[in-house]
């Protein structure tokens, strides 16, 4: 039993159908628990109540980047091994990732207003996320524009590869361009804690919640895409017969 078995649409539908309710349930539980716990944390002595937005901001930002990474891996699998499900999974992940990016941007702006005194600052991190959002938009638009599904999968796959390189390149170029106000990484595996445990554990929980939410949405959307493809295929066959 290899992992490629799930590249078969029928097997994928069966397995994902079985897993989806659990993932969705886990997402709800973890998100609600993490956000509620986060809401009950004490106020930060410097940032006050605004600190609590990190329980939305950080997980969304995390999934925004991981969403693109997933699209990259799925596109590679499609381009190399021609598994149709992986192309559809990449297609399904794009809007979810784009929304995550948007959440990260908006929560960042809401937090930045009282903290930095401005809704928008051309800070490297914010700017990179804006650029990432543009890449998501282009990717989604390309999927929508190409009529033939195989060609769309190929073209978006190539775009995703090129876009990944340039998104990374833009990240460093933007760093070079403006040093920025944004605080450093909120979480770090390196010794020397940056964040107190009061905030850390609820943050971990909501990160898990967002991850499960992302997974559930992508699974759901992939299943929808597969059904849509199947419908199109059956219609096409009908027309020819």
């Amino acid at each position: 039993m290899s992992i490629w078995e799930y590249a078969n649409p029928v097997k994928f539908m069966r397995a994902s159908g079985a897993v989806l309710p659990w993932v969705a349930g886990g997402a709800v539980v973890c998100c609600v628990a993490g956000l509620a716990w986060g809401f009950l944390t004490p106020q930060d002595y410097r940032q006050g109540a605004t600190v609590k937005i990190i329980f939305l901001h950080v997980p969304a930002a995390l999934m925004a980047i991981n969403g693109w990474l997933m699209m990259l891996v799925m596109s590679l699998i499609w381009l190399v091994r021609r598994h149709h499900v992986s192309a559809l999974a990449a297609k399904a992940a794009a809007p979810v990732g784009a929304v995550m990016t948007l959440i990260a941007l908006i929560t960042g702006a809401i937090w930045g207003q009282p903290m930095w005194g401005t809704w928008w600052e051309w800070d490297p991190r914010l700017t990179s996320f804006l650029i990432l959002f543009l890449f998501y938009l282009g990717y989604i638009a390309l999927w929508a524009a190409v009529e033939d599904a195989d060609s769309a999968a190929d073209l978006t796959g190539v775009l995703c590869l090129v876009g990944s390189v340039f998104a990374l390149l833009s990240r460093y170029a933007v760093n070079f361009w403006n040093q920025g106000l944004h605080q450093g990484a909120s979480l770090s595996v390196a010794p020397g804690e940056r964040m107190s445990a009061v905030y850390k554990y609820p943050l971990y929980l909501s990160m898990l919640g967002f991850f499960l939410l992302f997974l559930a949405l992508v699974l759901l959307r992939t299943r929808t895409e597969i059904r849509r493809r199947r419908l199109a295929a059956l219609l096409a066959r009908e027309n020819r017969a």
């Binding site: 649409p9 149709h84 192309a87 599904a149 195989d150 999968a153 597969i226 493809r229 199947r230 199109a232 295929a233 059956l234 096409a236 066959r237 020819r240 017969a241």
Partner: peptide, 17 residues
């Protein structure tokens, strides 16, 4: 002939039919 089992699908449509 549509519907004949193919060892390699021609594309998305056949893979999902």
């Amino acid at each position: 002939m549509p519907g004949r089992q193919a060892d390699r699908p021609a594309g998305f449509n056949e893979a999902f039919a």
